[in-house]
Design a binder for these strands. Structure first.
Lengths: 333, 333
DNA sequence: TTGTACGCGTTATCAA
DNA sequence: TTGATAACGCGTACAA
């Protein structure tokens, strides 16, 4: 409320320097048409008064904010942090700033965030949220806000997307396993409410098994290392073998630790795979076989594409990242 | 440039509904003094035209943005992501949105971000960047922007801070170790350019050793799991014992993995401690003795304090989090 | 209850 | 090279 009074405006600078505010504006924006003499005089008074332009007013006048909206689930995952880091790196390089819209678990919440994105007048948006449907994204697009959608195949006049190949890699993993005489039955670890990335993998997992007529299992766990560890410690008191495919490193590590702490051997008795692998798959012991994707690169690519989209220079509006299976010590091979 | 034309303004809504724009404004802000009849009429045309208010113009008129600036280093660390998550959670709960200002390694860069924070007209800021000095923070304060500074003891009219007790815990760890007859010489892992948190710990490490007249070592490593692993694999080809204090889990795990992969035993031959522990200290094997702090809680507390500061209701402008030593299997005890 | 008119801090288009 | 002046989209006293 009273910041107002403290804040030096362009008008006050103009008055103090004995010029019009138009001239001050020119100096700020480093346009030509200003005498060297007046320029230095203005610059000096700017410094003396401690004047900083108001980004708000600038944005209102130019219709550009240099802000990019990023919609992500609030989940605290390493791979999301990595992606955000990639986005942020490129944004910084290109002079943009990121505004974070973190969504909760519900679709309503995600929609409310879309509203906020529109209101906030960002120059563009990167959306990575599984709760949103195609129509929701269309909505943001109808306000002509350039948007890159991650993990959803949507392309439009002002929309591009970045996708992954987890499903295909998973299918190959499964078929290769049985083709090479794998003996364990596979169990897919289902995490409630964990989005379409996992859902898609689960469907491919089931389809692949049905195709080759193999038994499979689905198990539900909470999306927490501690609880999964506890659950599997009980589980391994009874069951002594299995091949587990988990959503991400922490969950896979929980299963593996529960196994080894129960006296079982990995990978001889228990095999484990992590779908969304991060660097931690390589750090834990045994190291975990996982599907690796450079999420920072995903973020960077998305941001580069968004910038091109803003400039209306984006040619290929769809990009696909190939996850690759990295076999480590948590599986036999 | 041409978003402009597409965007429906309050004026167009007023015209379409046959009222003045003041009335529309009242409807938007849910103020009273509007007939039920006109209210519904206005609301209906708002929906029909797909009108969304411009946050920019609102902010300019009210001098409030509902944006909080967050200044953090670009480093991709788990504990920073955790903290950010805590901030974001509370911000969301209180109707704020986060604008991210990620700084690089240099002080200049951090200063440039401070500039941007001021220009961006946020309602408040949370600063967690080691590069900044006290005077730099004062600067932002002179623009009367409420600020919470993390890991720096600064208090002022519009400034509060949140700090930690890593140093004290580390000193106790060291003294206890020798008091109980610890035989290894300790080595502090110095990471170049890793900020004052680590610097402070290093000074305490040295001071504690000098106090009790013990030998100690300092080793330089790069802030990378892979390179540290390589370096220590070479190191352990020659040295067969040691007690290592590393900055964070990844580095500690690199040392520990290099040791075990070289045939050394942890903790019998090699002992390892992580200063800034995250949940991964508990996931790797052997689990790593570490100093634990709930960084999400740090973020939440900071945001709560900031909100109070904005409302001028913050009583205690300084808060201290106590790190606690969690002894795990990477050290003897 | 509704409308008028001004202010918020800039940029940008003309004249001068 | 400069300086008025009109946008930009909205909030809000004040008047009607």
């Amino acid at each position: 409320m009273d910041n107002l009074k403290d804040r030096v405006t362009i008008y006050q600078v103009a008055q103090a320097a004995g010029v019009s505010l138009a001239t001050v504006s020119r100096v700020i924006n480093k346009q030509g048409n200003v005498t060297e003499a007046t320029r230095t005089r203005v610059e000096e008074t700017i410094k003396r008064l401690g004047y900083k332009p108001s980004g708000l007013a600038q944005a209102l006048a130019t219709n550009r904010t240099t802000n990019i909206g990023v919609v992500i689930p609030s989940a605290n995952y390493v791979y999301i942090a990595n992606m955000l880091n990639g986005v942020s790196e490129v944004a910084k390089e290109k002079g943009f700033v990121l505004t974070l819209f973190t969504t909760g678990r519900s679709r309503e919440d995600a929609l409310a965030m879309i509203e906020k994105v529109i209101v906030s007048h960002v120059d563009g948006a990167i959306i990575f949220d599984d709760e949103l449907d195609e129509e929701d994204v269309e909505k943001i697009n109808s306000y002509s806000c350039p948007t890159i959608v991650i993990n959803k195949k949507i392309v439009g006049e002002r929309t591009g997307c970045v996708n992954f190949s987890y499903g295909a890699v998973l299918e190959k993993l499964i078929k290769d396993y049985y083709a090479k005489g794998g003996e364990n039955e596979m169990t897919f670890i289902h995490v409630h409410n964990s989005g379409r990335l996992l859902g898609h993998c689960e469907r491919r997992f089931i389809a692949a098994h049905q195709e080759i007529n193999k038994e499979y299992h689905i198990m539900n766990v909470d999306d927490s290392y501690a609880r999964t560890y506890t659950d599997f410690t009980q589980y391994f008191a009874i069951h002594k073998k299995g091949y587990f495919i988990a959503y991400r490193d922490s969950i896979a590590a929980a299963i593996q630790n529960a196994a080894t702490d129960s006296g079982l051997r990995v990978p001889e008795d228990i095999e484990v795979v992590s779908l969304v692998g991060t660097k931690y798959a390589n750090i834990v012991r045994p190291s975990i076989t996982s599907m690796q994707l450079d999420w920072q690169e995903v973020g960077k690519r998305s941001m580069y594409m968004l910038i091109d989209l803003i400039k209306r220079e984006l040619e290929e509006k769809s990009y696909k990242f190939d996850a690759r299976l990295v076999e480590r010590n948590s599986t036999k091979h």
